[in-house]
């Protein structure tokens, strides 16, 4: 049986496009908001749109905060998307509620002299290799829509950066954890490639026990 990838459903955001992307790849993922299901997952996708405060409140309400931290720390391949990147940080300008704290660093508002949200296709400049970016050229375009950006405390974890007047971290990773500020499921072929690589990462991890 194939290892199970769970798309975490906490009642916020549109999970359908992420789900469709995995269906399209021929590797259906399971959408679930059950802590038990999450704990048994062999791969985790944390999607999200909306605000960090309400997302954290929803995760807490469903008892998903501890299971998410446990999965991230146990070596399970874990992919955060958009708000799902921001939620991995220590905290955010957007809300006083702390985030998951899996990456030290802060989420900041895009400066007001720039158009907010940062919306559209922008380039990712790859700073270091990562299995999820295998076969992806530096300078590839991905679809962004966000009003806040992450400012990680540890620069060595930055896998990709993007220039929007400010140069910000658009891909952050450590070991089993990877997160992107853009939406792979809205970024055409190159976006789907990242999910395909993630599936491979999950299968390799399982095969190696």
């Amino acid at each position: 049986m194939n290892p199970t990838i769970v798309i975490v459903d906490y009642g916020a955001g549109n999970l359908r496009s992420v789900e469709k992307a995995f269906e399209h790849l021929g590797y259906p993922a399971m959408v679930s908001g059950e802590p038990e299901t999450l704990l048994n997952a062999e791969g985790v996708i944390l999607p999200g749109v909306g605000s960090s405060g309400s997302a954290m409140a929803a995760l807490e309400k469903r008892g998903l905060v501890e299971p998410l931290i446990e999965k991230a720390n146990s070596g399970t391949p874990f992919f955060g998307v958009c708000l799902g990147l921001q939620l991995l940080m220590s905290g955010s300008d957007e809300d006083s509620r702390p985030c998951l704290g899996l990456f030290p660093g802060w989420v900041r508002r895009i400066p007001p002299q720039l158009k907010v949200p940062h919306m559209g296709w922008n380039q990712v400049h790859i700073k270091q290799e990562h299995p999820v970016f295998s076969g992806v050229d530096t300078g590839s375009y991905f679809y962004f829509v966000h009003s806040y950006y992450t400012d990680p405390a540890d620069d060595t974890l930055i896998v990709g950066t993007t220039d929007y007047g400010i140069d910000f971290c658009s891909v952050l990773a450590s070991e089993n954890l990877i997160a992107t500020q853009f939406h792979p499921e809205k970024s055409g072929e190159v976006g789907l490639k990242l999910y395909e690589n993630f599936v491979r990462m999950v299968m390799l991890k399982e095969a190696s026990g």
Binding site: R16, S17, K20, A21, V145, G188, G191
Partner: peptide, 8 residues
């Protein structure tokens, strides 16, 4: 459309 399209 959502099954075939992976752009916004």
């Amino acid at each position: 459309a959502a099954e075939k399209l992976f752009i916004p």
